[in-house]
């Protein structure tokens, strides 16, 4: 019994963080059609931002970090990405690749490569069943779940969300209907960046902070996006849960490297069987048909 509770808590904690990152990644891929290799580095920036503001109250630092994320996203979109949209898929991918290198090395130059750490604001433990688990992780997992639920409600149930989905579906058609691609791109990338940065900030107290910390999240986040239908926004969230469920399960039986290898093998198999991904979206069918 306690084994299962432990498993579910671990699974909830890791899948919450990944779901947020994957949602952000799916948003960028869906709207800007960019494979954002810098996603892990955006998380890393979030963690370092929290480290830099470790003297401030946690929630204040968190809010400030979100602002940092918004600004960073805006600067990157206006300063770099905007210039490569018309150069094709490969150029945009390489541009984010370059952005990733610069962020990583920039942080390494400012903060050095030695590992850092910050304290969690909630140091207590909660007892669930007969398992003792850090309160911080439980609260953050729940908080992310609420945030994602709100984001998905926003995307699927508001008119602004409808405009976003229209733009993802067909950016040219949407622009004819008065949805400016320039403005949408800048906004979406800023928000998506802020979400990735936020994910990094929330995870920061539980990990060793170093400039390459984002790398370990990059592959699973992409797996989550890849197994869902292109352009779907709920898909990556469900995908992240599916990936982490499989991964946590595999880790119960194998060491982490073998677990990752098996996960990768499963992904390859999945791509062979379902090259277009699965439609996880809970949009009602009639809305799609019309």
């Amino acid at each position: 019994m306690s084994g299962w509770i432990q498993f579910l808590l671990d699974f909830a904690w890791v899948s919450a963080g990944l779901a947020l990152v994957a949602f952000s990644l799916g948003l960028i891929l869906g709207e800007l059609k960019i494979v954002n290799i810098a996603q892990g580095d955006l998380m890393m920036v979030g963690a370092y931002s929290m480290y830099a503001m470790r003297e401030l109250p946690f929630l204040v630092a968190l809010a400030a970090t979100c602002v940092v994320g918004l600004l960073l996203g805006f600067v990157l979109e206006r300063g770099v990405l905007r210039w490569v949209y018309d150069k094709g898929f490969m150029a945009t991918l390489l541009a984010t690749w370059g952005v990733g290198i610069v962020l990583e090395q920039g942080i390494a130059t400012v903060f050095t490569v030695s590992q850092k750490g910050i304290d969690a604001p909630l140091k207590g433990l909660v007892e669930i069943g007969d398992v003792v688990y850090p309160t911080y992780r439980v609260v953050v997992a729940a908080g992310i779940a609420v945030l994602l639920a709100l984001l998905l409600l926003f995307v699927y149930r508001t008119s602004l969300g409808l405009r976003l989905r229209a733009s993802i579906d067909n950016v040219e058609m949407a622009s004819v209907l008065g949805i400016s691609p320039q403005r949408t791109f800048a906004m979406v990338f800023s928000v998506a960046t802020a979400l990735a940065v936020l994910a990094g900030a929330l995870i920061a107290p539980t990990i060793a902070i170093n400039p390459t910390l984002g790398l370990s999240f990059l592959a699973p986040a992409f797996f989550a996006v890849l197994i869902s239908k292109p352009g779907s926004l709920a898909g990556p969230v469900v995908g992240a849960v599916a990936v982490e469920f499989t991964f946590t399960l595999l880790q119960a039986y194998f060491n982490i490297t073998i677990a990752e290898s098996v996960l990768f093998g499963l992904l390859a198999l999945f791509i062979v069987l379902k090259p277009q991904g699965i439609s996880w979206s809970w949009k009602p069918a009639r809305e799609k048909a019309s």
Binding site: L29, F223, T257, E260, S261, F264
Partner: peptide, 28 residues
């Protein structure tokens, strides 16, 4: 796996990226 006609263009990027990350861990 990654270059079939029906596969999304981002698939190859993800596969090759995941391979290098994994290979580094295996080597370690």
């Amino acid at each position: 796996v990654g270059l079939r006609r029906v596969t999304n263009p981002s698939t190859m990027a993800v596969l090759t990226l995941a391979t290098t990350l994994l290979a580094e861990k295996v080597a370690r």
